[in-house]
Design a protein around this nucleic acid. Structure first.
Lengths: 218, 218, 218, 218
DNA sequence: TATGAATGAGGCTTCATTCAT
DNA sequence: AATGAATGAAGCCTCATTCAT
């Protein structure tokens, strides 16, 4: 309740006395900027300007640019992984479950472009900030559990071939869904086709599901 | 006579009057720096220092930082596409040809990490520099021809199912081979596994080939 | 109290937190440099060095070299026009008033060489910065009012011939007073005479007044 | 005759073997650039590019940028003074002669804007290059002779008042005719009027003549 | 908690000029 | 007489960060 009042009071008035809201606002803005421009490309000044607060607060809460970036990275993973957690496949039969999982992953990536771009940027930086974050590693520890369960049930039911490591399976699904977003610009620029249109995406989605299903079929 | 030779070779020290060598040297160095640090992350000063020539010559030949970057990007595509051109599959039967093509692509990407990173960086920049380059679009115009031929022959022979667009097939092969390099760091950081080891790569390679073959099987 | 004054004045050493003083100091220094060397001839580094503050602050307050130049130009006009405002001729009879006005203009130009030089520089730049400045156009809007009043009163009194546009009259006065400063160097260099000596200036001043009076006499 | 052949051969073909033509071409281009952009504003590279020859030749013939500028300055004076020499007033009666001389000066300045701008630039540089040029001083030595003759004849005929120094008279005529071109941009920018229109110029011309005539009338 | 002023280091780029052929 | 390649010095500007209040 106290919480509600706080939240309400923090709304539109100039001076924020709600640290969490301030931090969240900073992270939101910074995420967009980092995702758009990369770590070295993003400008603290520009981030501060688009914020409801001032530059000083960024340093107050996050120490420096890298600290802010790391927090954005963590937030990106938190949002995405928490979204994934909502997918419940426990009572769905394996083949159908896998299809749903792949479709979900495809859609989920497509609707979280900022996350994709943050990961791209991390890859440019050789994953050095990911390595620093215990938070992120913990977030991912359970990410494969779902998939592993579905796969094992499918193998037991004779629907999937055995011998595939869940992490490899995860890898392939990721590759197809991630690349779909990450390399869209370059692909479009080079081949002069719009790979992002609704119909093109529908075809791609079907193919990706198809590919994974065939990959596991006996 | 010694003199003549010296003169022709332009000497080993002092002023070099070999524009092509100078430009190539600059591009080589710059490519490494851009691939490592991105467009905004790379430093002209550092590039110049690692060069056999001076900072001034970078501007003399390439105008500005973006001009240099664009030339590197073009060079990266030129090298990779010219490497691909050496793969001759005309007289190989379709199934075997496709396997070779996928394996080649997998290996080629793995051995051209700088190219992969340049494309990643371009994607961060929304492909805006690729769009500017007529050269690159021309280089890619024929990139799919090989694949299309193999696929069509396979369909004709009853070895592949019909109805797949060559560009989509290219897309999937690219996704799997590209992601293998581009997302290695993040994957390793997150799951604490070494996805780059020889054995891991051998497995992955086999799986990628397998996946594409199954995707096309009737 | 001494302390209070000190605090208010922000102290003499270390970080000054007196934005107006900082800006004024920069403008003062920059004006001198621009007036002496022109827009492209002036050096930001040199301006900064002669300032109590740093090069960075120039950019903080004025954006870039052109912004600084524009502010100097505006300041030059502000100073000169405000000086002119102090000349009150309302209760002086027209002929005497005109003489005073011309003499004042002659002296005022002579004592504001930096202003003259800034206008010369602007003319070299085709007046493009003047065009940009709303401030300056507003400052000049009332510059002719005084003159117009005197002239009209003189015509009404039968002391001046009618049919001369105030702006043309202003033009001629300006020409004679402006040229006196602006072209002194070239004139001296060419004819090897010192046109700036006190006696030479006294003669010139008398002639200029004479010329304008005769120009308007019936 | 040899000369004629040379001249003819030097025409449009790439390689010029006509030093004088090359130098003239350089001076023509440089004059325009200096007049437009000032000494520090003009770019040797740009001048060279607009030339039929190369940058090296500029240094070959003129030593350095300042040398080139000085030659342009001298050329500007040479052209203008030689134009003035064509005005012959020996057999015209003094009042009419003075009118013609003023009108000619007014028109001559108006049609030699580059000259005006070169003088403006020199004034910005405190006439230091003019001082260096013996050529220019010699060119000007006779510039006042014409005027002096007319004035003296007028005084002798009782048409002009006595007591005016020819150099002062020259000064006033110059002021009015020079300012008409030199300060046109600033005047237009400030007062938002087109002082360069044909009708405006006709009025101004008449007024300038009028002013000088009245100044000398008994 | 919050802010505008201030900073030093370093970034990109341009200039007039010279060299080797 | 002519040229393209090369250069060092110096120019303008931007960055992440900190201070004083």
């Amino acid at each position: 309740m106290d919480d509600m009042i706080q939240t309400k009071a923090a709304g539109k008035t100039g001076r924020q006395h709600n640290p969490e809201a301030t931090q969240r606002n900073i992270i939101d803005v910074a995420m967009t900027e980092f995702a758009r421009n990369g770590l070295s490309g993003a400008r603290i000044d520009e981030i501060a300007e688009k914020t409801k607060t001032s530059k000083r607060m960024i340093y107050y809460y996050f120490g420096d640019k890298e600290g802010l970036y790391l927090h954005c990275l963590e937030e990106a993973y938190r949002v995405v992984r928490s979204g994934e957690g909502k997918l419940s496949l426990d009572h769905v039969e394996p083949v159908e479950a896998l299809r749903q999982l792949v479709e979900f992953t495809f859609d989920h990536h497509a609707s979280h472009e900022d996350f994709i771009r943050m990961v791209m940027i991390e890859n440019i930086h050789h994953g050095e900030y990911l390595k620093k974050s215990k938070t992120i590693r913990e977030l991912n520890r359970t990410a494969i559990a779902n998939l592993e369960d579905v796969y094992n049930r499918g193998v037991a039911a004779g629907a999937f071939r055995s011998g595939v490591q869940p992490i490899d399976l995860h890898w392939h699904i990721s590759a197809l869904c991630f690349f779909n977003i990450s390399n869209r610009s370059a692909f479009s620029s080079i081949f002069d086709v719009d790979v992002g249109s609704d119909t093109a995406q529908a075809v791609r989605r079907q193919q990706v599901v198809d590919m994974i299903m065939r990959f596991l079929s006996v």
